[in-house]
């Protein structure tokens, strides 16, 4: 069957498209596959392809308290980051979409700016600030750093949720006797709950995978999983790294699937 795309592309185009697809798979997906396969090796060093299937490096990571502590740190920092970004992102989104002040509109771009900025620049800015505040190496420092880069994600999803329904719902609640807070609590919040949850999951995922800010802002007591991975890469390359990387990958994928499922369920709901 000759599809429309085929008709437009022609033979050369189809070959080109196939090459592009192959390159995409090779460069984006293959490294992930390699890492996952390598994590199941029984050797003492990273080998590919693995000779025999074994879980000894997963067991090894589990037995080293440093990995466990780093994982626990990452979860704590990710949770705090998610909560802080949801609060800040939601408030900013409310201000920009419902504030009714024209001067607030450019504020939206300002909130999103950290998403475009290289993390290293944010890190360079935050590092001396945290030193001055005596927060360097603390949980607070990492959470603040991660909140800076995660808030834009919450802002974008919540602002989209707010723009997705008729403002008259809130006006109706006001006439029906709800004051500002109760209007938010009983109308705005239920309407944006999906966007809020998805934004929170994204914020957690960003924090969980973030390296640069953790390098600058975390200390030995607060080191995160990506930071510990980085250290191991620089010092002793063992298959433990592959095992931990595979676990992080699986966890992040799980978060993305959760967010996507939520998003779809929201999309299926009939419009108000």
């Amino acid at each position: 069957m000759m599809g429309r795309a085929d008709a437009v592309l022609g033979v050369a185009g189809r070959i080109g498209a196939a090459v592009l697809l192959a390159a995409f798979v090779l460069f984006l997906v293959a490294p992930v596959v390699v890492i996952v396969l390598m994590s199941f090796t029984d050797q003492l060093y990273l080998t590919f392809p693995p000779t025999r299937f074994a879980l000894r490096w997963y067991a090894s990571a589990w037995e080293q308290s440093r990995w466990l502590r780093a994982a626990w740190n990452s979860i704590q920092i990710g949770t705090a980051t998610a909560l802080a970004s949801v609060a800040l992102g939601t408030l900013s989104a409310l201000a920009v979409t419902r504030g009714g002040r024209r001067w607030l509109l450019p504020f939206g771009s300002l909130v999103v700016a950290p998403m475009m900025l290289p993390h290293v620049i944010i890190a360079i800015g935050l590092y001396p600030t945290m030193l001055d505040l005596g927060l360097s190496g603390s949980y607070a420092a990492v959470v603040i750093g991660h909140t800076v880069v995660a808030t834009p994600l919450v802002f974008t999803t919540v602002a989209a949720a707010l723009r997705g329904y008729d403002h008259a719902l809130e006006l109706a609640a006001r006439t029906l006797g709800a004051n500002g807070w109760r209007t938010f609590r009983f109308v705005t919040l239920p309407m944006i709950a999906g966007g809020l949850l998805i934004g929170g999951i994204f914020a957690f995922a960003v924090s969980f995978d973030e390296l640069m800010l953790a390098l600058f802002l975390a200390g030995p007591r607060t080191e995160t999983l990506p930071r510990l991975l980085w250290e191991h890469l620089a010092q002793s390359v063992t298959p433990t790294i592959a095992a931990v990387a595979t676990l992080i990958l699986a966890f992040t994928l799980l978060l993305l699937v959760a967010a996507e499922t939520l998003r779809r369920r929201k999309a299926v709901e009939p419009p108000p």
Partner: peptide
């Protein structure tokens, strides 16, 4: 108040 698009809470 009754609104054009009803403004019922979905």
């Amino acid at each position: 108040m009754v609104f054009q698009n009803y403004a019922l809470f979905p």
